[in-house]
Nucleic acid binder design. Structure first.
Ligand SMILES: [Mn+2]
Ligand SMILES: [Mn+2]
Ligand SMILES: [Mn+2]
Ligand SMILES: [Mn+2]
Lengths: 152, 152
DNA sequence: CTCAAAGTGTAGCCATGGCAACAAATTTGA
DNA sequence: TCAAATTTGTTGCCATGGCTACACTTTGAG
């Protein structure tokens, strides 16, 4: 990384350029589990008072064993605090990430609705799309939604 | 699954409804490797005359061993035909999927550019987003791009 | 024609995130 | 209170898609 790239001309068919795209998608996949987990944990703490393994399992549609394994990783990565047989908490870093993800999720959902996607479909699509939208695109989404709302 | 759900009212905070969203994302992840592979194989056959393992590796930014393993799966799934030490071919099903994915990829890229996302960023984002966009949303993307093009 | 380089295949390792089955702790309600 | 139900934890299995190292085949330059 950080080779010298003087004028940085992008040739779309350039193999290395293509590799960059796929690398970025793979990176997104690395982080998206963590993102969805901290987001849902934050939501549960707000709406239910606490985040329990069994609720995460139901909401994600996976077994509690799977949740447990992921939580172990998130703990290792410093996003989640868990004491045995107790409900889950977020670290400061986890809370920060959750806030960022919730905001982003909302921007994507609102945008899809703004361009006319039915609410239920917008919510389905946003769950996946959110993890692949760059900051620049997000900004454009936000501006578009704002503009549309002023009109209507 | 397939419990009786008479009027099917969607409550956004409903845990089962939430599980549906995440299940859909997981399904997309199951298929997206296959999608990107057949799309790139089709492109290489068109532009280079043949699709070779080493080119796929370069374009995806992974080792040739990884490509080989994925190709094995795609062969098992009836999308790719490969003879030892020979270049890769698509089955009819593979070609069909490739065409569908290329079209979808193009629609997403064009849409992002149409709403003002810079070309290079649009191409980055599209590579991930394409796999999470429903048919309904795609239709709306297409209509929006068409409309925008008429204006400009 | 030869043989070195390039390409391909394979084995074995890893991390992630699925699962079922079983074990342990906690909570609940009779 | 205390036993049953619920929740949580753990183990061991699987598939995917990463990697390196090494083996084999094909290709092409000299
Ligand atoms: Mn989300
Ligand atoms: Mn998501
Ligand atoms: Mn694509
Ligand atoms: Mn893609």
């Amino acid at each position: 990384m950080t080779k010298e790239m003087p004028p940085k001309i992008i040739i779309p068919a350039d193999p290395e350029h293509q590799a960059l795209r796929f690398n970025r998608v793979r990176e997104a996949h690395q982080t998206e589990t963590a993102e969805d987990y901290v987001e849902l944990i934050a939501d549960l703490i707000e709406t239910q008072g606490e985040a329990r393994v069994v609720d995460l399992a139901t909401r994600f549609g996976v077994s509690h064993a799977t949740v447990n394994k992921v939580i172990l990783r998130l703990n290792r990565e410093g996003l989640v605090v868990n004491k045995k047989y107790r409900s889950l908490f977020l670290t400061d870093e986890g809370r920060e990430l959750a806030a960022k993800c919730r905001e982003r999720h909302q921007v994507v959902t609102d945008f899809l609705k703004a361009i006319g996607v039915p609410d239920d479909i917008a919510e389905l699509d946003a769950e996946g799309v959110e993890h692949h939208v760059s900051a620049e695109t997000l900004k454009i989404f936000k501006a578009f939604t704002r503009k549309t709302r002023k009109i209507s």
